[in-house]
Write a protein that binds this DNA or RNA. Structure first.
Lengths: 233, 233
DNA sequence: TGTGACAAATAAGTCTGACTTTTTGTTCCC
DNA sequence: GGGAACAAAAAGTCAGACTTATTTGTCACA
């Protein structure tokens, strides 16, 4: 998604970040900058920059004479895309996936309602195109192409809502949908009912029917939640 | 809220962050690390750490031979509490406040519904206590005390939902509520209807009535949205 | 005229070592 | 036992030298 490992400090983050978010260092653990620098075979300046980034994510806290202490999970910036990616790649992936899907179920219906009111003609066209793409790839194990249009569809909805907080959840939704297709058991073709819902949703948005758009999206997200319950009850 | 200006690099951030989020440097602007270091009268290492943090917030991008370029608003990590605070302190505060209130209106009802199912006895007690505190301070210009209980109330709801993504929005809600009381025109006592809604909500959660909790919260957030429309139509 | 390779300039990236500051824990004295 | 002085530890800061990637410009050649 984003460029990984840009520079030495990026490489350090790619290792330390996942380790911390995976709970490899329990909260309260104390790390020393110099020690870490040796372990990763980088200079102190590089390690300091990495620590600063982890600190800005509220994963750790750096204090004089003490060291770099790992913060409890409840204080992490769990909306940071980087943190989300690290956690999705780790052990509590199922738990994380559920949290995010619940978030989707709260946000997307409201976003769809707003999109019905605010979407431009251009966005309506894109939406219909995405829905068409989903239909066209809904059978015959064309999961990859289906996913592509599914992600694009939800991105357009979130953007069309006109709310920047919603729009920025596009990446999160993309991660969740991609994760579902790639990592979870999903050999079968997508649920035809879900495909229909997307087509109808594109329609509702185009017609400016906010209430219907909201309700349809609610059905879509309920489906996503049920899917999780089936896979990991 | 969080400790401001910890160390030199923190001080730099406290100046640069607000400046960038306020649009003082339009997207695409190029900054030079050395130049900034001189301006702020700090060493290059300190400035580099600051830039790294801004980079992790996706406010800027650092590239060799080019410099530190400011990214477009659409790429910022708008869920970063620090970024939220900077923007709330800046010029587009009204716009930001609206975005966040819309987010609340999407998330809180669902969170309340979950809270009704998952809240512990302890949390139910806290909720009732907060509601009582709101009632007790709803008249006689005791805005500060009222705010305190209001913030605590919503935090408990979000925590009790059992969803960590919701729980982490507690700070955001606190900022919005605090901002409303302190910065917006709010000389009058809070709307009695809103107070009643909170009392009823505490009741619904205690009784485990998810549907009612959700509906009551929807009414609360609708009220918050209307309030914004009245203040800045 | 266009194009490709090569060279120069530039700004970030990295490393090192010396020094400062804050915090904590200990010890010693009243 | 409590408080003040002291010592140690780790992060914080700085300055300077060096490396590397990227861009831009130039020049020769087709």
């Amino acid at each position: 998604m984003t460029t990984p490992g840009r520079g030495l400090h990026g490489h350090v983050l790619d290792t330390l970040g996942p380790a911390i978010t995976a709970g490899e260092y329990p909260p309260g653990s104390v790390l020393r900058t110099d020690e870490l620098a040796q372990q990763f075979d980088v200079s102190r300046s590089v390690m300091r920059e990495a620590v600063r980034v982890l600190e800005s994510m509220h994963l750790v806290e750096s204090r004089r004479r003490v060291g770099v202490t790992v913060r409890p999970k409840s204080e992490w910036n769990v909306y940071d895309p980087q943190v989300i990616r690290w956690r999705l790649a780790g052990a509590d992936r199922p738990h994380q996936l559920r949290s995010l899907t619940v978030l989707r179920s709260a946000v997307e219906p409201v976003a769809a309602g707003l999109a019905a009111k605010n979407a431009t003609a251009q966005q309506c066209a894109e939406l219909t195109e995405c829905a068409l793409g989903m239909v066209a790839n809904s059978r015959g194990h064309r999961l990859e192409q289906y996913l592509f249009h599914d992600v694009a569809f939800h991105r357009v909805i979130l953007n069309a809502s006109g709310n920047e907080m919603f729009a920025r959840l596009g990446d999160v939704v993309a991660e969740v949908l991609t994760g579902r297709t790639h990592h979870e058991v999903m050999f079968e073709d997508p649920d035809p009912a879900a495909v229909t819902l997307h087509v109808k949703l594109a329609e509702a948005v185009r017609e400016g029917d906010a209430a219907r758009a909201e309700e349809l999206t609610r059905e879509i997200t309920v489906g996503a939640l049920q899917e999780l319950d089936i896979l990991a009850p």
